[in-house]
Write a protein that binds this DNA or RNA. Sequence first.
DNA 1: TTGTACGCGTTATCAA
DNA 2: TTGATAACGCGTACAA
Lengths: 342, 342
Amino acid sequence: MSTTLSDIARATQTSVSTVSRALSGSVAANRLNLDTRQRIQAAAQELGYRPNLNARTLRTQRSNSIGLIVNDITDPLVARIGNLIEQHLLLHGYSLMICNSNEDSEQEARHLWQLDQRGIDGLIIAPVSSDVEQLRQNLSATLPMVILNRSIAGLDATVAGDHEQTATLLCQTLRQAGVQRVAVVSGSSRLSIHRIRMQVVRQNFDVLALHEGPAIRKTGRDARAVFARLPIAPEAIICSGLVFANGIMQVTTVADLQNNPPALGVFDWVPMQHLLPVPIAAAVQDVYELAEGCVEQLMPMLSEPVPGAAAQRRPQEPLIFAGQIKLNPAYEAWADRRLAVQ
Amino acid sequence: MSTTLSDIARATQTSVSTVSRALSGSVAANRLNLDTRQRIQAAAQELGYRPNLNARTLRTQRSNSIGLIVNDITDPLVARIGNLIEQHLLLHGYSLMICNSNEDSEQEARHLWQLDQRGIDGLIIAPVSSDVEQLRQNLSATLPMVILNRSIAGLDATVAGDHEQTATLLCQTLRQAGVQRVAVVSGSSRLSIHRIRMQVVRQNFDVLALHEGPAIRKTGRDARAVFARLPIAPEAIICSGLVFANGIMQVTTVADLQNNPPALGVFDWVPMQHLLPVPIAAAVQDVYELAEGCVEQLMPMLSEPVPGAAAQRRPQEPLIFAGQIKLNPAYEAWADRRLAVQ
DNA sequence: TTGTACGCGTTATCAA
DNA sequence: TTGATAACGCGTACAA
């Protein structure tokens, strides 16, 4: 179908191997007769030759591509990290294949399997569950892998926010506004990211209710309904992820805001929060740091171009970034009102 | 490295082809001795065999995967479409590789090239430019392709919103609020999507200023600065895409909203718009329709499983979906105020 | 029912 | 400087 090396060989009266060398761009190309090399390159151009990457990968065991599996591509934070990771990888000559597990471990397994068998050189993943077996089962044991925003026992190549620090910061902020009773929406407590956050929250507050569910907006909507029926109203709702806050706000109307609704303490940046009339304290990460961290973490794990050197699986240190708190104007007004009442 | 068919053959004292048949799951598997088949399957399980997809694709010329190239994965609308497309493809047994061109035609070309040479069976793309050559140059001519949200001469497999209809609807809405003078932020007028919208806008309004630029938030920010210096203030700003509205709102403070700022007429849904204090009239598409449309459009273009049948490149009709207008409470209040003044 | 042999498109080794 | 030739892992026509 597409033109191949042998097509060019026939057209230029040379052999397949010569053509391969001429187009490889490596040192071997320089050892060629300048004339034949140019003839071959011209023919390649002419025939619109493009190498078959499957064949090349099959032969060389390298694909120059990295896989990224995210749990929810719809999350703007995740999307931005993906975007930035791609930009960084490009600088290193790698391209990125993004796959979306959609918070579903079956789809995750499928993607793991596919990417691995397509011969990606490395993987960056925010796993749906922290089950190491699920990962190992679907991957060749030697595939370099960086875990994003989770911590998994036995895997040190990790890039994440400092969940304990940011959670502490967020709790302190809310307490400064006099908050004592909170309700919580969280993703699965089997994930370290949520477990750690919740632990810190419990240390700081009287937790009236904890609604746990998959990291989708519906969980946030459900939580809001549950919290509305509590005998004592929470002063703030803590959301262990943007999706939950979005779910809550989806079913919040402007009219609701008249009745002094609880503030939202959100892990992760809320888009356009500075304009939203909902009081929001957000614990934000520098996504640029995270993305860059993933790439810098991954690169040294890839087998060196020198085939002689054994793949150096030097253990990486986890890369943990501190976050900070961003309040929106509505929150500041809300906090002022609370303090005035006291 | 990984276990291969021949590993299993050796372990079970059979031949590679027998193993291949036993694991293929096709009719050929049934013609095997039940005993040997089970022995082979057991061994495969034992050794953790997973087929090498590169080799398989190289051999069969089919990968059971579809590529999706989007211009901006950060756009929530785009991300949601990607997500939905993936779900739909799964039902048909295909998996999806998402690539982000990031509004950059070089990256787009790179992705086109890569996906094609990796042997994807079909492509869905929202091209950066409507240059057919750019596409054709990097693709094998026979690759089934669906164009998303653009219209390109000569390519009929298209899925898009009805840009003229939605633009007309949006203009009518604004005019009902007495708007006569607008400013416009738009992506490249070389893209039909923006060109059509702008054309309709011009027919309906006195366009004070037109700011054209790449579809990134910065363009929106810049536009806002430019519009602020106009001798006559626009009554509304029309944004040919969510990114522009986001850019404008990024640099809008709550204080700004006291000074009766222009309303925003936005193509595409604005997340959380019902809570935003900015008057917004949004022309929204049903993303589910769009995603489903892409898949339904693409499926019949893929070569039939029967190898005898020539790939049926039956020309598809463009699939155009009507949109509708969603006003937020702030807009309704804004419109009421305007009409009251009259 | 099973095995042999070939080819998919590349790259790498060896010899000329 | 160049050309056979083998091999990557798989699927399949053909022969047994």
